[in-house]
Simulated scan of single mutants.
Amino acid sequence: MSDLGALSYYPSIEVRQGKEELTLGQSAYTSKPLEMSGMVECKPCVTPMEERLKLTKASTAAKVNATLYRSIVDVLRYLVHTRLDIAFVVGYVSRFMEDPRENHWAAVKRLLRYVNGTVDHEIIFPKTDGSRLQLTVFSDADMAGDIDRRRSTSGMLVFLGSTPISWLSLK
């Protein structure tokens, strides 16, 4: 076994290790779903999903290319490793991979426009000075927000750091 030095790249994840921080990003990989969908030159938007968007599996909108839809959503699912800001939306549009429709595809395109405007987002882990760590947890849920199954979607954020939220930030 040989020492290959500090980790700098893990499949599609760029790793930069500095004296003050560790940074994980996927800027090169981010262009893949944009190229697949033909949206490289699209106009960026500031939010990953339309506010209060409710999609259903029982949609009567026109069918779209299911293979393309699944391929792009799969790439976006891998992008979530370093892009926590799109995790909810990717999970949401993943529900419709069996039979995607125009309104589902519109939500994916909106997400791709957001990704196009945030290609350089990274996760930054600042190095701590050895001070006492503090655990902070936030949770939330919508009540029966899934129209098809009447189930709730819940989410949780867990922070472990010397100060509640500062140890993890999105650039």
Rank of each mutant, 00 (worst) to 15 (best):
M1P: 02
M1Y: 01
S2V: 05
S2Y: 01
S2L: 04
D3F: 03
D3K: 02
D3A: 06
L4V: 00
A6K: 14
L7D: 05
S8L: 02
S8F: 06
Y9V: 08
Y9A: 06
Y10C: 11
P11W: 07
I13K: 03
R16N: 05
Q17D: 13
G18L: 14
K19T: 14
G25W: 01
S27T: 13
A28H: 06
A28I: 09
A28R: 09
S31F: 03
P33S: 02
P33V: 00
E35S: 13
S37C: 06
G38D: 04
E41I: 13
E41P: 07
K43V: 06
C45L: 11
V46L: 07
P48M: 08
P48A: 10
M49G: 05
E50I: 13
E51N: 11
E51M: 14
E51A: 11
R52C: 03
L55V: 15
L55H: 12
T56Q: 12
K57Q: 14
S59T: 10
S59A: 11
A61N: 05
A61W: 02
A62W: 03
K63H: 12
V64S: 13
Y69K: 04
Y69C: 04
R70P: 04
R70N: 03
S71G: 15
S71M: 01
I72V: 10
D74G: 15
V75I: 11
L76S: 03
Y78E: 05
T82L: 00
L84Y: 10
D85K: 06
D85V: 02
V89H: 00
V90R: 01
G91W: 00
S94R: 04
R95V: 01
F96Y: 14
E98A: 15
E98F: 06
D99H: 11
D99M: 08
P100W: 03
P100Q: 07
P100I: 07
P100C: 08
R101W: 00
R101Y: 00
E102C: 12
W105K: 02
W105N: 09
A106V: 14
V108G: 03
V108C: 04
V108N: 04
K109V: 13
K109M: 07
R110H: 15
L112I: 12
L112W: 09
R113K: 12
R113N: 01
Y114A: 10
G117Y: 08
G117R: 13
V119Q: 15
D120S: 12
I123R: 03
F125K: 14
T128L: 04
T128Y: 00
G130Y: 04
G130T: 07
G130L: 05
R132D: 03
L133T: 07
L135F: 06
L135Q: 06
T136I: 00
T136D: 01
V137Y: 00
V137Q: 09
F138N: 10
D140T: 09
D140L: 10
D140Y: 05
A141D: 08
D142G: 09
D142P: 02
D142F: 01
M143G: 12
M143V: 09
G145A: 12
G145E: 08
D146W: 05
I147V: 15
R150C: 14
R151W: 07
R151G: 02
R151V: 09
R151C: 04
S152V: 09
G155D: 10
G155V: 09
G155T: 07
L157Q: 15
L157F: 15
V158S: 09
V158M: 14
F159Q: 10
S162T: 15
T163D: 11
P164L: 09
P164G: 01
P164N: 11
I165F: 14
W167D: 07
L168Q: 05
L168T: 06
K171P: 07
